[in-house]
């Protein structure tokens, strides 16, 4: 049984590393966007379109990293659209996000038809297997560079939000547009830039899905991961480092269902498979409190008002 326990533990570790990256990229991008005072619910569409364009471009160009770049650029176009539309008076950022989610997935499915079957060049992992002799761990330690880029980005974003002029402006815009305006900051421009960067990151997250893990393009590829990642931002209290923790937790919990079944614990697998959601909800309930308002919540953010 201890063998089984180890297997499950290692599987959860491996799952955390493998599955977390798209969540990480989307939630980092969304954290920045939300810190500037807007919410972009449309990142599911951006993620799916990013996944499709990455796979298509990788297939057509033969270079997976070109695919990643294309996904990022495609994502930033969606981000720009959101940023631009929402500056118009009386336009709801939540609603535009939902519209872009529909539009993005629609376009991705439309143009992605021809790329379901072909095999595109995928991203390669960096092999840290030499660190261990355990065969299962060896596999778990094959890690895609995007994972490390995501981790680094989280640290940079966390630091930059707290310590740089850029970070200050973003936070100020997010907390009080009036103050920002009084300081001579163009609120719309800041939010436009923040949403564009958010879109770029979500697109890259999609590239990870189609070009690395699970590593193929089809219409069921995301099944709501982008939406979940946006939700994880609230869970992470807009803290980029917490986004890392949330993404890892979600990835690890997602590995639980398959891992338990692989060692023969299969009764009630529906609930094991829903473990990420159950766990997230439980933590959310345990860690929230009506006494204090959400710490770190940007004052201008519509969804937490």
């Amino acid at each position: 049984m201890s063998d089984a326990l180890t297997t499950v533990a290692v599987a959860m570790f491996a799952g955390a590393v493998r599955v977390s990256t798209p969540f990480l990229f989307v939630s980092l991008g969304e954290a920045l966007t939300e810190k500037s005072g807007r919410i972009n619910l449309g990142l599911e569409g951006t993620l799916v379109f990013g996944a499709m364009s990455a796979y298509a471009v990788s297939y057509l160009s033969g270079s997976p990293w070109t695919g990643v770049l294309a996904a990022g650029l495609a994502g930033s176009v969606f981000g720009m659209a959101h940023g631009f539309f929402c500056r118009l008076p009386k336009v709801s950022d939540i609603a535009i996000g939902i519209a872009l989610m529909l539009f993005g997935t629609g376009l991705a499915f439309f143009f992605g038809k021809g790329f379901i079957q072909p095999t595109a060049p995928r991203l390669q992992a960096i092999d840290f297997g030499f660190l261990t002799s355990d065969p299962q761990l060896k596999v778990a330690l094959q890690i895609n560079p995007l994972f490390f880029i995501g981790l680094a980005l989280a640290v940079v974003l966390w630091w930059a939000l707290a310590n740089t002029r850029f970070g200050l402006i973003v936070r100020m815009t997010g907390d009080s547009a009036a103050t920002a305006k009084a300081m001579g900051v163009s609120v719309d421009l800041v939010r436009f830039v923040a949403t564009t960067i958010g879109g770029f990151l979500a697109g890259v997250g999609g590239a990870f899905l189609s070009l690395y893990y699970p590593g193929s393009w089809n219409e069921g590829l995301s099944s709501g991961q982008g939406l979940m990642a946006v939700a994880l931002v609230i869970f992470s209290r807009w803290n980029p480092l917490m986004c890392v923790a949330a993404a890892l937790l979600f990835g690890a919990a997602g590995a639980l269902g398959p891992a338990l079944q692989s060692v023969g614990i299969s009764q009630g697998y529906h609930f094991f498979n829903a473990a990420p959601h159950i766990l997230t909800l439980a933590i959310l309930i345990a860690s929230s409190s009506s006494k204090r308002s959400l710490k770190g919540a940007p004052g201008e953010l519509s969804i937490t008002k």
Binding site: L227, M228, A231, L232, I234, F235, G268, H270, F271, N273, A274, H277, I278, T280, L281, L284, I285, S288, S289, S290, S293, L294, I303, T304
Partner: peptide
Amino acid sequence: ALRHARAVNETISSLLMFYIAVAILNF
């Protein structure tokens, strides 16, 4: 109630509970 009693964001909790509902149904 979660929103009221513990300030749990309703958007995320309702989304999470959707997945739980499907698990209950299928189970």
